[in-house]
């Protein structure tokens, strides 16, 4: 199978793969009219202040519980085993746990800071730069043993998508872009999942 043959098949697929039935335009339009113009005004997303407070509280609890659990579960201090080859699985996993924990914490803080995006000059740029750094970390973690855990992998992939959106946040602030990011955060339950992941980290060995 060479490129030319594949091109030919994909050209065929453009006409045959998942060919959509005709949409019921008027029925769809009627629904849009009800939702967008007539229905209850849902334009206002949950208050950013409440959302941010929830994020911060969840993060704090999650990290505290995660760190306490990890310390309790670690019987041997790392300093006693300076030779890498003699490290136990728990010790080998520790750097990944710490890196992931730190990454999740920074990501949650970034999400908490989003409401202020664009309210001060340069804020968007800073957030975008942080998001780009976190995006790089996300991809590194996905390729690390952390990515072998299915649930963590899904979380990282979802975070990758949102961080990519934040990294491209336009300056000045765009309400439309922020709404999309908020929607992605809420629909993917990212904040509760970050909290759970931090708690779970102490129980995993990568």
């Amino acid at each position: 199978m060479d490129d030319k043959q594949l091109d030919h098949l994909l050209k065929d697929a453009a006409r045959t793969y998942r060919v959509p039935p005709s949409p019921e335009r008027d029925a769809i339009w009627a629904h849009i009219e009800r939702e967008a113009f007539v229905g209850p005004d849902r334009r206002h997303l949950p208050g950013w202040r409440i959302f941010a407070t929830g994020v911060a509280a969840s993060l704090l609890i999650g990290i505290l519980v995660g760190r306490m659990t990890m310390r309790l579960g670690s019987e041997v201090p790392f300093a006693r085993n300076p030779i890498a080859l003699t490290l136990t699985p728990v010790e080998r996993s520790a750097p990944y746990q710490r890196a992931t924990e730190e990454f999740l914490g920074r990501t949650a803080l970034l999400f908490a800071a989003l409401p202020a995006a664009g309210s001060r000059e340069g804020t968007n740029g800073q957030l975008s730069a942080q998001a780009s750094q976190l995006l790089t970390t996300t991809r590194l973690l996905l390729d690390s043993p952390v990515g072998a855990d299915t649930r963590m992998k899904q979380l990282l992939e979802d975070l990758e998508l949102v961080l990519a959106q934040v990294s491209r946040l336009p300056t000045p602030r765009s309400s439309a872009e922020l709404s999309l990011i908020t929607q992605a955060l809420e629909e993917r339950d990212l904040v509760p999942r970050i909290r759970l992941a931090v708690v779970d980290l102490s129980g995993n060995e990568y």
């Binding site: 949409p23 019921e24 029925a27 769809i28 629904h31 849009i32 939702e35 967008a36 113009f37 849902r42 334009r43 309400s175 439309a176 709404s179 929607q183």
Partner: peptide, 14 residues
Amino acid sequence: ADLTQDVFVQLFRQ
């Protein structure tokens, strides 16, 4: 069809 509705509802709201 649901997605199409959702897209345009969001679009017109924003």
